[in-house]
């Protein structure tokens, strides 16, 4: 796992995807931070975190798109799959590499908090639990993006597929409000990524939400492993 993790981190930077990802992430969150916090003298970062959630939907699939699709296209997966490593460690190596880049992106919030603390008091606990929530959402989103990437050998298809997948998760609330059947509605609300995240931005720490994001991450990583198992056995 270590070898794959290190190679992927290196590849993120040589392929400049990491730079593009981080730059866009910082520019957009920085824009809302400047307008919503610095210019309007507010220490409430919840708007910045809401924006983070939305741009993650668009940016995470770009981060994960090449992880498996490129391997397939360049025929390098044959090297990985015939090496003495398990499928799980191949998938997790790539997963944690993407998660690391995402952690770097989210940690910008700590710098925003530090800037605000110069001018006033910052609710650090809320900020940290917001960061944690963003990381958990990212952990789930990256697993989804990685899964889509393992399905295709076309990077663009992987990115678009990932965005559509994540948008569906995001729009579950909207869908739920249209469906009048109560039990379907309650199931869909339970599956909502955003309303769980919204709780965090309001300062509510809900353990079941933590478990929800973590189990999504585990489930999709498991699916990715299955994709490779299946390909081997077909």
């Amino acid at each position: 796992m270590g070898a794959i993790y290190r190679r992927e981190i290196g590849a993120f930077f040589t392929s400049s995807i990491a730079y593009v990802f981080l730059a866009v992430f910082f520019i957009i969150t920085g824009f809302f931070f400047t307008l919503g916090n610095v210019a309007s003298a507010s220490s409430n970062l919840s708007q910045v975190f809401t924006v983070m959630f939305i741009i993650s939907i668009l940016l995470i699939p770009i981060l994960t798109m090449r992880l498996f699709s490129e391997e397939k296209k360049q025929k390098t997966e044959q090297g990985l799959l015939t090496a003495p490593v398990s499928l799980t460690s191949i998938v997790l190596g790539k997963y944690f590499a993407a998660l690391t880049i995402f952690l770097i992106a989210v940690s910008i919030a700590l710098i925003y908090g530090f800037i605000l603390s110069i001018f006033g008091t910052v609710a650090w606990m809320t900020l940290l639990s917001n960061c944690l929530a963003m990381i958990l959402v990212g952990a789930a989103f990256i697993a989804v993006g990685l899964f889509v990437s393992s399905l295709t050998e076309n990077q663009i298809a992987a990115a678009v597929g990932g965005i559509v997948f994540l948008l569906l998760f995001f729009l579950i609330d909207l869908l739920a409000s249209f469906i009048r059947v109560p039990w379907i509605q309650s199931v869909l609300y339970e599956l909502s990524f955003y309303s769980r995240y919204y709780e965090f931005t309001c300062g509510i720490f809900n353990l079941s939400s933590v478990l929800f994001y973590l189990s999504t991450a585990v489930l999709f990583n498991f699916f990715t492993v299955r994709v490779f198992e299946k390909r081997r056995w077909s």
Partner: peptide
Amino acid sequence: PEIPPLYLDM
């Protein structure tokens, strides 16, 4: 393999 599994950007 028939096509060597080389990472071109390394």
